[in-house]
Design a protein around this nucleic acid. Structure first.
Length: 535
RNA sequence: GCCCCCAUCGUCUAGUGGCCCAGGACGUAGCCCUCUCAAGGCUAAAACGGGGAUUCGAAUUCCCCUGGGGGCACCA
């Protein structure tokens, strides 16, 4: 297939460029055709988490890619719950995952809560289906019943490891005649079903991002298909479901890559049409050393970051930014475009630019994307998004004021949470500035007092705190006093906002209003008077 | 121990044999703008892991080494 190389060739005026220009046009035509062909073949992709833990970044990326490809091709995005491990089942995990998906804006077309024609979408509700296929495999002679106890298996493995040979099933039950096996089962003997791996030859499988991979079948194990409790393992359940649900493209973690040959062999044994496989590489720690682990989670949280999706909202991240960030770890568009809205991603996502290299997460880049997406929001939208953060801190917010402060906050926020520290003073009845903040560098208490007094005098004359009544008069005052603007406005800023760093002064003053401004100025004057006497 | 995968600035990446003494982005440093902080603009430092081979020509193809990652369960 032709590769997409946007912006690579440019039509110039140089005579030689004419040919390349023609080629470029032809290139674009081809590209169009490829896109149309792609769009004409809707995919069916599934995100299939197991409810054994909460949703993290790895989940988010896999789900995002699934969603993007489905939307991009007009196909279906399916959510399937792989809950065949009842021992590790976590009650809140399912809701945590569905909430995470919804927060990210990755609504599924089929699955829990929404149904679909290929249901049920929870594996424990499909047990009879797997049983049927396991039986079929036994009858075909490609699987066998195994009566080995876990104790014996453990010992066997230990012995193998001691001899430094590859741990694998030793084949004890492989050749028990089927009639005998059935008798033992009827007699109540516990058993599992194992795949009867061919002993000779090799198999070549294909990961779309890496190419062909060939392995010796002798290296593959007689892996278990059905556990002794009658519940299938992933390798059976997922393949049966992917086939039955007509999944065309499988996105899963690279931890599954080693078992791809077994998985593909099952497909081929049944004669099913194989999906295209994409094994997404793991996320590494920010240091790049080792994969992201639960152990480190607490540490990230301390730094104001998290790898858990349910933390992202509270930390002040936008789902748009998380998607943008996560999309670019393992996928690129043209190597230079990095800002993508969800619509952009849906339109531009393509499997050709997927990359198999493990990537270290970079939280500061998340911050950057979050800032970009915050600035991309409308004032009204931003206002509504920062509102809950103020509410949670006990501030009584006012929608009008919120809407007024949004424009001066927007380009200063890295996270929505930053709004509290930056603009809390708009909603506080009383602020108490620290005297040492009031007095600017290279300034005495008397100097600061003079600034506050003169400013108060001037502002008192004004009909309101509208920009036209504050900025010019204050600048004149600066000149009159022969001070540096930074110093002068520093005093006013701290007096009015209570903090040395704030959104633009005049805009802030206009929003706060004349009464409160004068009140705060006089408070500062009182504080400075006391200070001046003591020094 | 065995099997599999990966390898370009600190990090995310572009790159599919000549457009590359390697481009973009985050971060870092400096400058500009400026009422603080940001945002924005400009500039700088910063990479093809090592060795062979193929070729007129290799970041790009092949081999070996090294490094990193993953897997080898009645877990997913």
């Amino acid at each position: 297939m032709r590769r997409d190389r946007p912006g690579r060739k440019r039509c110039g005026s140089h005579p030689k460029a004419a040919t390349s220009c023609l080629i470029f046009v032809f290139d674009q035509l081809l590209l169009r055709m490829v896109l149309i062909m792609n769009a004409g073949s809707p995919v069916r992709v599934r995100f299939a988490p197991s409810p054994t833990g909460f949703m993290h970044l790895g989940h988010a990326r896999t789900a995002l890619y699934c969603y993007l490809l489905a939307r991009n091709t007009g196909g279906q995005f399916i959510l399937r719950i792989e809950d065949t491990d009842q021992r590790r089942f976590v009650q809140e995990a399912l809701s945590n995952i569905t909430e995470g998906l919804r927060w990210l804006g990755l609504q599924w077309d089929e699955g829990p809560e929404v149904g679909g024609d290929y249901g049920p979408y929870q594996q424990t509700e499909r047990l009879a289906v797997y049983q049927e296929y396991a039986e079929k495999l036994v009858e075909m002679g490609h699987a066998f019943y195994c009566f080995c106890s876990t104790e014996r298996l453990d010992e066997m493995r230990k012995a193998q490891q001691a001899q430094k040979i590859n741990p694998h099933y030793d084949g004890t039950c492989r050749d028990i005649p089927l009639t005998e096996a059935r008798q033992r089962i009827a007699a109540g003997e516990p058993y599992v079903v194992r795949f009867k791996m061919p002993r000779d030859g090799s198999i070549t499988v294909r990961d779309e991002m890496r190419g062909d991979i060939t392995v010796e079948l002798g290296n593959l194990d007689d892996y278990i298909l059905v556990k002794s409790n009658g519940i299938p393992v992933y390798h059976l359940a997922a393949m049966v479901d992917d086939h039955l649900m007509e999944i065309t493209h499988v996105f899963r973690g690279s931890e599954w890559l080693p078992s791809l040959p077994q998985n593909v062999l099952l497909y081929r044994t049944f004669g099913w049409k194989e999906p295209k496989w994409y094994h997404l590489s793991v996320f590494l720690k920010p240091s790049g050393q080792g994969k992201l682990s639960k152990r480190d989670a607490a540490q990230y949280k301390e730094g104001g970051y998290s790898v858990m999706i349910h933390d992202m909202e509270e930390l002040g991240y936008l789902p748009e930014a998380v998607n943008n960030w996560v999309a670019l770890m393992g996928w690129s568009y043209d190597g230079s475009t990095e800002f993508f809205t969800m619509d952009d991603l849906v339109e531009k996502f393509n499997v050709e630019k997927l990359n198999p290299k493990p990537s270290a997460i970079n939280f500061t880049k998340l911050d950057h994307f979050n800032g970009l997406h915050i600035r991309n929001l409308s004032h009204a939208d931003l206002a509504q998004r920062i509102k809950p953060f103020f509410m949670n801190r006990g501030y009584i917010t006012d929608d009008d004021i919120l809407l007024k402060i949004t424009p001066i906050l927007q380009e200063r926020l890295k996270t929505l949470d930053d709004a509290i520290e930056m603009a809390g003073f708009f909603f506080q009845d009383e602020i108490v500035p620290r005297v040492e903040d009031l007095i600017q560098k290279k300034m005495t208490a008397e100097d600061a007092l003079l600034v506050a007094r003169r400013a108060a005098e001037v502002l008192e004359q004004m009909p309101s705190m509208a920009l036209e009544y504050t900025e010019e008069p204050m600048r004149q005052l600066v000149e009159e006093l022969g001070m540096k603007p930074g110093q002068f406005f520093g005093v006013i800023r701290v007096a009015v906002t209570g903090q040395p760093v704030s959104p633009p002064l005049f805009e802030s003053m206009e929003i706060i209003g004349k009464d409160v401004i004068l009140q705060r100025l006089h408070q500062a004057i009182r504080l400075l008077e006391v200070e001046a006497q003591h020094s």
